[in-house]
Design a protein around this nucleic acid. Sequence first.
RNA 1: GGUGCCGUCGCCAAGCGGUAAGGCCAAGGUCUGCAAAACCUUUAUCGGCGGUUCGAUCCCGCCCGGCACCUCCA
Length: 487
Amino acid sequence: MTQPKILKIFNTQSGKKEEFVPLIPGRVSMYVCGVTVYDYCHVGHARSAVAFDVIYRYLKRLGYDVNFVRNFTDIDDKIIKRANERGVPWTDITREFIDAFYEDMGRLNIEKPSNEPLATDHIHDMLAMISTLIERGHAYPADGDVFYSVRSFKDYGQLSGKNIEDLQSGARIDVNETKKDPLDFALWKKSKPGEPFWDSPWGQGRPGWHIECSAMSAKLLGETFDIHGGGKDLVFPHHENEVAQSCGATGHKPVRYWMHNGFVNIDKEKMSKSLDNFFTIREIFEKFHPETLRLFLISCQYRGPIDFSQHNLEEAEKVATRFYEALESAQALLDKRTEVNLPNLEKDIEAHSLLSGFDEAMCDDFNTAVAIAHMNEALKALNPCLQKANPDINNVRKIAVISGALRKVGNLLGLFHSSPEDFKATAFNRKKAESGIDPAKVEALILERNNARAEKNWAVADQKRDELIALGVILEDGPEGTTWKLK
RNA sequence: GGUGCCGUCGCCAAGCGGUAAGGCCAAGGUCUGCAAAACCUUUAUCGGCGGUUCGAUCCCGCCCGGCACCUCCA
């Protein structure tokens, strides 16, 4: 990028968009809460992954050297429970779902972060932090457990906008006899017989959920780092507790910009395990191309809710198809017109209005919805050039520039990673399965129709077309013959 | 009960003080033997009522409707 842009980020902490200024010029340190590996990822996980992937990619475009850490929570009650249900070692569970996670993320075209620490590889860092918290009077051991004393931290609640009195009056906090205060949360949990454990000064046990992020972010990014992200549901208590832990241990705030993505909803309700209204990513991929899911997820601003439905995915699929088809024809034309020299193409691409519009949108708190609107405008400029039977040199160049700009912006959003054939094949296969159509029958009817057309027997040709339409088949007569697709 | 968020064209979705981006769908047109694709054109005053302002979808208040967090959760 030639022109420096001012990036604005909505900071959960302040509730406002703020100008982004990294702690160290030219560098960004970013930590995003990953997943607990006890099950397959659902669409909600996909949203978070895609949102921060787009953010990661864009920070790099702005020229930052980004140190991006995304953790795996690989020790937790749910993992132990799942292992017991299956009668296998808990490490079998974590290994299986880490592999599945990588498979899903790979298909979604999520870039690998700089570092992906496992909680269990950092137990010693957590123990050190817990000891510091005890020394500083922010935590206390109690019968093998260690708890954080929430009332020892005067700013508790400042991230999520809660105050201790309100939390206390809410009757949903579990009562635990060993806690001094019901608001206190576990830093270390004593293990029960048969459960995995690590040795600690307080006996055998395992870490509480929140401590891993505080310990690993400090270890890998420093006591103060730029961006911490995750789903909105993590604001309280997880991120609130992280702030308490880190501030308690170091005396200063760990995070400069807190970013939270909105939920994926089903019929206006949050998609969640407890409501049992979730879809796994791999279920979606059985019907839709990963890029369709990706485009759907970035078709609105990352902070708001997004309603998940087959209808909305189909709409995203249409949009993606239009882009793929235009890009495909542009490429075909450019391949044919190799005699046209295209000097300084990259420079013209970067200078195209799509790039400036894209940058403006992204600098406004990563507004991907507006970015996609600009892509549609570019597409609208590209298509008329593609209409021309034999475009002149200027048009060829225009096609090269606009399609290049579209590809570039698309790639920055993680799109156009597939081939047009693969992309269209996914939609075709789904429709074929849903309609139960027989391709051989379609081909036969098309042949009959084309025979009639060759004899200029339009009545028969149209009758065959009507039959095909009744089947949901749409014909396209092109210079290289007739192709068909499903409605 | 406490705390936030949201309500923009039939549908999805930006904008958030100066008279509403984009997409889907629909209609008309160009093209086509007819179609399809593509292109062109057309479609909203922003949940309701007050207030602040020269001016409000955008600020404030109240109301109606929906959601979320306060418990594991992306």
